[in-house]
């Protein structure tokens, strides 16, 4: 199977395999990305984050169905936690997305975090490049949903949607510092339940307080279950997108996204190299010295770095 050609032609099997390569750090991934990167930069990437139980998956499924009208294609990357003990994962978001499972213009991929802590996996970034190259107009990244530490999604998406549900008063207070700052659009899901208005008002007051930016994040009330208000989210995303375009911020974001693409790969490669470096027999003695408290970590790091950068 020629995965590169397949991806560029929008073939689903190739897209799926390409993402597996990226996830597995397969040597073929680098080659693939090299071959497709020139065709990326067209997709609009939207991140969705929010605590467990707020209904992100159902919401994503509804949004995808609506966004995929006409000839537009939607790719979904749904991230679930990987067990730190076994390395395995149960990727359960899919269960709530069966409405669009057979839609020809929607592609859904479940991903494990595989050791990353920020709510997405390390491969999410490159997986969205694969979708981009395959001609997907929209890429929706759904984070794990573990709470306020999930700010990484902001780095891989142009628009970040923060999803909440009624009755989250305390949580909203707690989230002030983290997740509330990255939201470009706020969605109160399950708006048919008691307390939706209160939650929306709380969010609005916090958003207004903190906001000195030119973009004023809207707070929307929807019900994914009843399929109500979904178009308002897509509209808001569209408005944010044109705001970014007209203010020149989209170009900036794309540039910094490219920079982060480089940085991430660089970081991964260096980390791997350094691990390898530490495994060198010459260093074992030094590591033992640290363990015996005859030396200290800083001293050894200085030595390693010296040797590392001196390498041809």
């Amino acid at each position: 199977m020629d995965v590169r050609a397949g991806v560029l032609a929008g073939d689903i099997r190739s897209v799926a395999r390409g993402i597996s390569w990226v996830e597995n750090d397969d040597p073929r991934a680098a080659e693939l990305i090299r071959g497709i990167y020139p065709s990326t930069g067209r997709a609009y990437i939207v991140g969705l984050t929010g605590s467990p139980g707020v209904g992100k998956s159902t919401l994503v499924s509804r949004m995808a169905a609506l966004m995929a009208t006409g000839k537009r294609k939607v790719g979904v990357l749904a991230v679930d936690p990987t067990s730190p003990f076994s390395g395995g994962a149960i990727l359960g978001d899919r269960v709530r997305m069966f409405d669009v499972a057979l839609s020809p213009n929607v592609y859904i991929r479940s991903m494990g975090t595989r050791g990353s802590l920020g709510g997405i996996s390390r491969a999410t970034r490159m997986a969205s490049r694969v979708l981009d190259a395959a001609g997907f107009d929209w890429v929706l990244v759904e984070t794990v949903g573990a709470g306020q530490s999930e700010v990484d999604v902001h780095d891989v998406a142009y628009t970040t949607v923060v999803v909440m549900a009624p009755g989250m008063g305390d949580e909203i207070q707690a989230m002030k510092a983290g997740i509330m700052e990255i939201g470009d659009v706020f969605v109160v899901n399950k708006a048919d339940r008691d307390g939706a208005d209160r939650t929306a008002a709380q969010v609005a007051s916090i958003v207004q307080l903190s906001d000195e930016r030119e973009w004023h994040p809207p707070v929307l009330k929807v019900s994914a279950e009843l399929n109500q208000g979904i178009e308002s989210i897509i509209e808001a995303i569209g408005q944010h997108k044109s705001f970014l375009e007209h203010s020149g911020k989209l170009a900036e974001a794309k540039a910094s996204m490219a920079r982060r693409d480089v940085l991430e790969i660089l970081r991964a490669r260096l980390s791997e190299d350094l691990q390898h470096e530490l495994d060198q027999p010459v260093l074992q003695e030094k590591l033992d010295e640290v363990a015996n408290r005859h030396s200290d970590p800083y001293t050894v790091v200085d030595t390693v770095f010296e040797q590392y950068w001196r390498k041809p």
């Binding site: 067990s83 003990f85 076994s86 390395g87 395995g88 994962a89 149960i90 990727l91 479940s110 494990g112």
Partner: peptide, 8 residues
């Protein structure tokens, strides 16, 4: 999952 596989 506990055997280290990714399960959908």
């Amino acid at each position: 999952m506990e055997a280290g596989m990714e399960v959908i």
